[in-house]
């Protein structure tokens, strides 16, 4: 008996187009949602919750984000500053940076992200330190509570 072993061998090729389409859409989705400004947010800060806080309307012309820990450490651009008292040179530098962009010190938005357990006196001290260098535009940032 003779076996016929001669089969036409073809390479199986699935249509990859829908998969590639979906993959690109997923990449576009994640690229749009990725937040590169995470360095400004200190993960260890637990913000107080409020349902009346106003969601930020765009980014201010110039902003300084100060994260305040319960112990009095200030986290600024990923750098931990152990005391509020030594903040002045950093704030002065920010004012100089802003002035290079023709932004007046009164227009600088100081965003205070304080831990909910921080003594309020420390928050006031930080605000006073910023006022010493003539900053006056403050934002108390809180976590938004969704209304039921």
């Amino acid at each position: 008996m003779k076996l016929n072993k001669t089969k036409s061998s073809k390479v199986l090729e699935g249509d990859l187009t829908p998969m590639i389409d979906m993959t690109f859409q997923l990449i576009a989705f994640f690229m749009l949602l990725i937040n590169f400004s995470e360095v400004d947010r200190a993960e260890e800060i637990t913000l107080p919750v409020s349902e009346l806080a106003i969601p930020p309307e765009g980014r201010p012309d110039y902003q300084v984000i100060l994260n305040l820990e319960p112990g009095g450490n200030v986290i600024f651009e990923g750098q931990r500053i152990p005391q509020i008292d030594i903040m002045t040179p950093i704030l002065d530098q920010e004012i100089r940076n802003a002035s290079r962009e023709d932004i007046d010190v009164s227009q600088i938005a100081v965003i205070i992200r304080s831990h909910e357990d921080t003594p309020t006196g420390l928050v006031q001290k930080l605000i006073a330190k910023c006022q010493d260098v003539e900053m006056e535009n403050f934002v108390l940032r809180v976590k938004e509570k969704i209304n039921q």
Binding site: P55, I111, F138, V139, R141, E144
Partner: peptide, 12 residues
Amino acid sequence: AQEGDFNIKMPM
């Protein structure tokens, strides 16, 4: 989580 603000003005 979405964050919100209390905008305040505190001039010297």
